[in-house]
């Protein structure tokens, strides 16, 4: 079953401060995403991987094209729906995590992770319980749980960030290099957690720069080249080459 239909998606940035230069981010990208699949987006630096995720999350507003989310009750075009609809979908359906944790200082790590669950209506105690499980699975040291992530190392913050993103088990999860700052062992744990905690219910679209990760978790691979879609292939047909000349 298709959960996302991406159709003719284009994004151009008008850089007024650079003498109205136009920078192309995405150019006519189209592909479908199936419910529950794990989709890896690969491409060289600057090929539009992050732009694609941000267009799906509406942090970037596409110039043209559609991103149709096939929800349980209705279809929504994420590229053009009102801002409030996006806010509602972000709360209930679509999760996003970038390489960087953007959090207010002075909120303990466990509450950072629990917050989306609380906003979904779970009790504070239940939410913190789940948060602690996730932090354990990601081997965040117990003594950090009640500390503020602003004081953490890059790797620790990234784990908190990932825990927060997956905690509410969103229907669609967008991951932008969520494991880049992790050592191989923790990265392994994080990847395992994605499959165990999410239990195949969540559709994941992720940017991973590590080919091993892609091969370990992805069902299909989306290859981008200079803002254009190069190909979408099953992972067993993916040769690890970023772009086939």
């Amino acid at each position: 079953m298709t959960i996302l239909s991406i159709d003719g998606l284009s994004k151009t940035f008008d850089m007024h401060v650079l003498g109205d230069t136009q920078v192309v981010g995405l150019d006519d990208v189209s592909f479908d995403v199936q419910t529950g699949e794990f989709l890896a987006i690969v491409g060289e630096s600057g090929s539009g991987k992050s732009s694609l995720l941000k267009c799906l999350y509406r942090t970037y507003e596409p110039n043209s094209g559609r991103v149709v989310y096939h929800g349980p009750t209705r279809d929504v075009d994420l590229a053009s729906c009102p801002a409030r609809t996006v806010i509602g979908l972000r709360r209930d359906v679509i999760g996003y995590t970038s390489q960087f944790l953007d959090e207010i200082p002075r909120v303990p790590a466990v509450d950072v992770v629990a917050r989306p669950l609380v906003e979904q209506g779970h009790s504070r105690d239940d939410a913190r319980e789940t948060a602690r499980d996730l932090l354990t699975a990601l081997s965040v040291p117990r003594e950090l749980w009640e500390a503020y992530p602003a004081t953490f190392s890059g790797g620790e913050r990234q784990r908190v960030n990932l825990a927060q993103a997956i905690a509410p088990r969103p229907a669609v999860l967008l991951l932008d290099e969520p494991t880049s700052a992790l050592d191989p062992e923790t990265r392994r744990a994080a990847i395992d957690l994605l499959s165990t905690y999410l239990d195949g219910e969540t559709t994941v679209i992720g940017v991973f720069h590590d080919t091993n990760v892609v091969e370990a978790v992805a069902d299909r691979v989306v290859v981008l080249d200079d803002g254009r879609l190069d190909r979408v292939v099953p992972v067993d047909e993916y040769d690890g080459e970023v772009v086939v000349e």
Partner: peptide, 21 residues
């Protein structure tokens, strides 16, 4: 006007771009 992260990361108006830069 728009989603806060959209306004901050993908500002459309010249003035907003200046403000953010």
């Amino acid at each position: 006007s728009g989603l806060t992260d959209r306004v901050l990361e993908d500002p459309h108006h010249e003035y907003t771009q200046t403000l953010i830069n």
